[in-house]
């Protein structure tokens, strides 16, 4: 490499093979028609995209908070990677929500200019994690549910949602595997770690009931959205398998009415938004 212009030396030849992950970035949604499918209510579609987008945005925020404090470097990489994937899903879904709504709001308007009660994420996404066992238990529940959901959603009548979901399935498959492996290691590891994972699982399950309560928007969007009740069987089976491997007791999910989907959140979301939206709101007319 030429030394006189160190910066130029890094950019002057097309040797993609030397990039860690290649430079062939492609738009995952290239060629997917952006028009709304016939007979779909715009407001319902926008609301549905917000639900799934907010889940990813808020869960990603919690993962971002772990980036420089994981047990191993490999986990800092993995957690950043999962956070990045979910952030990518959130951006596509919020953009789709804005398009469906038709009021000119983009991903940033939706992420930074809504109040807590306007967020549609499940409460599971916003909870804080006191330790790594809690994070992994929550990630397992979240990704197991979301993977099953996206797997069905890849057959949606909305080609854009179907494409977003198909891309997400590949990512979530890895996320679920990562979380499951840690739940097993921690559950099976030492008496201390076993106790912590048992506590983490019983702490997170009260938040899981909400995941399978169909919202009226989801029911009205039959063929476009997925009724989460239909993925309950798969969720239960996966969870049981992982918990068995982790030497933990099988768990029951309490039934709870959906709350986050209607904008009823815990104080944890208010804290997240205070942090996330602070700068964007502090500089009106700012260019970033």
């Amino acid at each position: 490499m030429a030394f006189d212009d160190a910066y130029g030396a890094l950019t002057d030849h097309a040797d993609d093979a030397r990039w860690a992950y290649g430079t062939g970035f492609t738009d995952p949604l290239a060629g997917v028609p952006a028009d709304l499918p016939d007979g779909v209510d715009r407001a319902d579609l926008a609301a549905y995209c917000l639900m799934l987008g907010d889940d990813a945005l808020i869960m990603s925020h919690r993962l971002q908070q772990w980036v420089t404090r994981a047990p191993e470097l490999e986990d800092e990489l993995a957690i950043a990677n999962i956070g990045l994937d979910l952030l990518g899903q959130a951006r596509l879904l919020l953009t789709r929500a804005g398009t469906a709504e038709g009021a000119g709001r983009d991903e940033d308007d939706l992420a930074y200019r809504r109040e807590a009660h306007e967020f549609r994420n499940v409460r599971l996404a916003e909870r804080d994690d006191a330790d790594f066992a809690q994070l992994m238990a929550r990630l397992l529940v979240f990704t197991t549910w979301r993977l099953a959901l996206f797997d069905r959603l890849s057959g949606s009548r909305d080609p854009m949602l179907a494409a977003i979901a198909a891309k997400g399935v590949k990512e979530l498959t890895y996320h679920r595997d990562y979380a499951a492996q840690w739940v097993v290691r921690i559950g099976d590891g030492t008496p201390l770690s076993h106790a912590r994972m048992a506590a983490a699982i019983s702490g997170v399950l009260p938040l899981a009931g909400e995941l399978f309560q169909a919202h009226e928007v989801e029911l009205r969007l039959a063929g476009v959205a997925v009724d989460p009740a239909v993925i309950r069987g798969e969720f239960d089976a996966v969870l049981a398998e992982v918990l068995t491997a982790a030497t933990l007791e099988p768990a029951e999910l309490p039934e709870v009415p959906a709350t986050g989907r209607d904008g009823e959140h815990t104080a944890a979301l208010t804290e997240i938004l205070a942090e996330m939206q602070e700068l964007a709101r502090a500089v009106p007319g700012g260019a970033w």
Binding site: P71, D131, F132, T190, S193
Partner: peptide, 10 residues
Amino acid sequence: DGAWVREAAA
């Protein structure tokens, strides 16, 4: 904070 996690993995 991560010591108990690494011990569990080991």
